[in-house]
Amino acid sequence: MTITRRNLLLGAASAIAYTQLSTLQTKADIKIASKAGDQQMVASMCRALYPHKRFAENIYMDVAAGAIKKGNADTGSKIMFRVGLDGLQAKKFDKLSFKKQTKYLKSIEGSPFFNLVRGHTTVALYDHKQVWKILGYEGDSFSKGGYKKGQYDDLDWLPNPRIEEHPDLAAFLNDSSPTKYASSKIIKTN
């Protein structure tokens, strides 16, 4: 990762978070983002990243739970995730307008916390079975015998196209005088 001012700041913040965490080390197995409201906070970030009006809150909460689980994977992740969550809380991220949320997300884009939450959300959100339903995706179809005529071709707002090859295709492909195209050997690359 290239060192930018932001990364340095995040690095500094991690160091602070680490000392806080190590003072707590006497208690066995610290979990981050376990307080009431933490999951909602992360969920609000998931929604701001991938805003869908049609998706109910429970979907984003499910996704946030998965992200938090990854954040608890090991000590390094815990420290990193805590710092990120602190950032959201300091900004009262869940109370911001969508525009301000986007602005904040841009400012942390590329940070390990952002990468974890975004990377997890883009996979988990669109793999969510409730989301499939809302988006109109039917999932498994083999068990239902596949799609029949009138289903795989039910689009009715365009005419039915030709499916055979054009009669001139073979001649076009076989035209064996490509050198006629080869006179110009300059490549423009814009």
């Binding site: 071709d153 689009l155 039915n160 054009h166």
Partner: peptide, 27 residues
């Protein structure tokens, strides 16, 4: 024989046709 046109192909082939292209097919 060729495969029949599915929905995605309908959009693709009609779009190609409207741009004056002709060498489209389902295989």
């Amino acid at each position: 024989p060729p495969l029949p046109a599915n929905n995605n192909y309908k959009v693709f082939a009609e779009g190609a046709k409207r741009n004056g292209y002709k060498f489209y097919a389902t295989g």
